[in-house]
Every structure is written in structure tokens, then in C-alpha cells.
Design a protein around this nucleic acid. Sequence first.
DNA 1: TTTGAAAGTGTATTAAGGACACAAAGTAAA
DNA 2: TTTACTTTGTGTCCTTAATACACTTTCAAA
Lengths: 249, 249
Amino acid sequence: MKKKVIKNKLVELNPNVSVDCVIFGFDFEKLNVLLIDRGTTLGIPLALPGNLIYNSENLDEAASRVLEELAGLKNIYLEQIGAFGDPLRITKITDQEWLKAMRAEPSARVITVAYFSLVKMSDYVPQASSFAKNASWVSVQEITELAFDHLEILTTAKESLKQKIRRQPIGFNLLPEKFTLSQLHRLYESILEKPLDKRNFRRKIQKLDIIESLKEKQKGVPHKPSQLFKFNKEKYELLTKIGFDNFGF
Amino acid sequence: MKKKVIKNKLVELNPNVSVDCVIFGFDFEKLNVLLIDRGTTLGIPLALPGNLIYNSENLDEAASRVLEELAGLKNIYLEQIGAFGDPLRITKITDQEWLKAMRAEPSARVITVAYFSLVKMSDYVPQASSFAKNASWVSVQEITELAFDHLEILTTAKESLKQKIRRQPIGFNLLPEKFTLSQLHRLYESILEKPLDKRNFRRKIQKLDIIESLKEKQKGVPHKPSQLFKFNKEKYELLTKIGFDNFGF
DNA sequence: TTTGAAAGTGTATTAAGGACACAAAGTAAA
DNA sequence: TTTACTTTGTGTCCTTAATACACTTTCAAA
């Protein structure tokens, strides 16, 4: 089995367990996912960023590590979707690290633990890492094919995000500090994949009392500039602490 | 690595991946979980039924197999909760199968994929299997300690079930064919861990139009006998097919 | 100064949620 | 056979949330 020295400790790759991340980003128009082109030849479908885990880390740590290693992203909203893996995942043969690990353990198969994460697209800057130089944002609507079972994972991730945002206001993780209500509105529409009435949306979100109007407006737009808002994390945490979990849509 | 012959095929245990099942049952009063006493000595905490997976099966199959092998349960409602596993799960040292597998692969650790399942308690008859002869139903309220990280898994399972039943009428899996509205009412209260007004509950559940009144009443009870109902699966599937997913509480 | 484009705002109607109390139907015990 | 006991089964009022819907305002650009 492949061994690596990290921080003066002998750690080992586990050839049976990987993590894959569905990294969502919002460009103010639609929802996107960060995908990796692992093809050395043409025609190989894109894949979710992921990697094998080390025996020395727990699953959440492994997902964080993958986010950081492959996309340079730190302190990111992460949520486990679940485990995937039928024996066919053994077809993951383009992953070099996996190949090495397999040499020692040829009969094993991989299961993967999938996560979704929400990032501000501006926070992502393409890395020089061998993996991520081939990474790019793709609109979720346009994705019809992915490597391995990643399309199934993406579908589950979308559903999971939908359910989650109907209970908790996690959408703010996809927006910059300052945002407009229209941006938030489009964000909810993108995630829920259905139109929401503008006035009803605004009334509802403002009634939740977790966003705060800033004394500042949008600039340089060729139309009436919008009021800017920010998410009030303190108020939100206060509400959840007293058991409130109906930020629903 | 340990090899076993099943149905004329060579299959292998994967020493890194197990499944554990939170098997819920309802005794018309409260929610129970089927736990296994793996202790040869006294004082060893109870555990969730679970086992290592074979490389030849997928995760859902493995969970079904465990349900059948350990509890004799077939065709049971199963739902994945998620994957658990930090390196400390390596303490799972009382599991003999695992010990054997570890001999070949001493440095590996186990992650577990957890499921919850809903069964009619009457369907469960203690098995003669070496595992399950030590199985018993325990009220979820009374559980304060479990082996390994199983308490964490149980907590997640309870939360998962709560969320799920607020969207989909899966509670019927815990009840016999014919049941009373009071039984259903207590079931919802047990799962949601909060009182629900009797009349409001009845109005709401009947409005969903997925239960059907039978021309039959309870017998032999020392009070006014209750009308019996059954779950109308066809109507429910029709509703979900057209996108309705608000069976909420 | 006109045009285009998105922001921002209120009301009326309908549906759902929550609180609440008493008569009816059976068995068991006196 | 009467009484006590226990659980079933039912309706209304009030409050809150959801939905449908259209016009004026404000800025930049032409």
C-alpha cells in the first residue's frame, strides 16, 4: 500500500474509500458546479473533484482536504450527501493514486462518500495544482454526462441542497457579503428550479429577520440601483438556538 | 483477506467498509430500536446490527443482507443516513469477522454506512443466528449508551426519520395493515417527539386522502372501539408522481 | 429628453394551522 | 342492571401564512 509522509507522520491511503465533492457556485444567474477534466485524451467526461482518503483523517477532514488541495478553498460550507458505491466503481481506473494503491490490494473496490459545498464563485481562483488546472465551472443545467457514477451523485446533491435550503438559510454561502434581494431571489429560483413571485419572496425573506439592509446601494448599473443587504448570522444563530427551523420555501 | 464461497462465487469481505442498521419498530406506545448484545462479558454496551460488506455487493444490498441475516427481515423499508467513520472506529475489535480481515490488512480502518429501516414489530421473530439470538427491542428514549459511535448514528437516524416523515408518509411501514387513527397519531408523536393536537392531526391526515376507512372496527377493547384504516399506497404514489411532496407535519 | 431595464411596493383572497370541550360506545366491576 | 371507566370521535373560531397580481421609481445610455 502506498505510504506518504505528511507532517512527519506516516499516513496511508485507504484504497477502498474516496470522497467526492459537488462544489456549487452561483454566478447571479444560475447554479454552477466545479468540474475537473481528467482526460488525457479527448472525449472523457468531466468528473467531480475527489480523492482517496487517508486512514488518519475522518471523512469531513478528507472532504475539506480535497477542497483545499484541488480548489484552494478553505473554511467552506460542507455537507455530507451520503455514500455511493456498487462494485462497478472499480472502473475508476484513470486515477493514478488509486492505481498505485490498487497494486497492493488488487481485489478491492472503492466506495465514495459524497459532499456538497457552497462557495462564493469569487473565492475560487484556479490553482496551479496538477488536478485543478483543468477545473472549470459548468452550469448544472447543462450537465448530462459525468465520469463514473458522478451524475447520480450530482442529482442527489441537487435534491439534497433543495431540501436543505427549504429549512435553513444556507444560500448566503453562495453570495458575496453584500448582495441584493434580486440576487437572492434568483438564487432561490435556481436552486429550487421554479419561479417564485417577487413580492412574496421579498416579504417572506424580510420577515425572517435574518438579513440586514445596508446604507449602501448598487453602483454603475443601467437601471434603478438596488439596496444592498447582508446576512445577519448572529440573528440566525439565535433563532436556530431556540429551535426555530422554518426558514422554509 | 478472508474469502467465502457464496452461491458458487468467490466473494471477499471488504475490511474497510461496514453497514450498520438502525431498525425502528413501533409498539403502539413508543419508538423502539433493535439492538444486539455482542458482549461475552458483562458491561459491554449494546450495538446496532451491522457487518462488513462484500466487494461483490452494493451498499443497499449489503444493508438488506444484514437485515436478513441478523434479523430475518426481508423487503423492508430502508433509507441511507450517511457514512460515519473517523480513524477511531478502529476500536471495533470485538467483531470477529473484522479481526480476521484485519489480520491481512492490519493498518486499515473501518468506515460505516448507516441505514435506518422501518419494520412492523410483529414481523420480527428472533432468529437462531448466532448474532440475533442476542437481539432485543429497546425504547429509543432509554438509550444513553451504545458501542462504538453507534449513539451518534442513532441520533442522526432519529433526526433523519423526523425530517423524512415531515415530507413523506413513511410511517405506515411501522404499522400493521389495519390500524387506528390513534395509533397513527401516537406514532407521529413518538417520531416527532412532541404532542400533536388530536383533532388537528385527524383533520390533516384525512385531508391528505391517502388512508382509507375500512368497514371494520377494533374488537375486544374495554372502551369505544376504533374505526380501522389502511394506507392507500396507490393514491399516495399517484400524488407523489405529480410532484406533491407535502405530507408535512 | 427619451428609452430601456430592473427595483420596489400593497392589498385582497384563499388555504392552512392552532386552540379548545363534550357526547358516544364499549368493557368491567360493583 | 347500573355505574364507573376509558378511549373514540367530532366542529368552530381565530390567527397566521400563501398566493395572485400591476404600476411607479430610479438610474444609465442613446
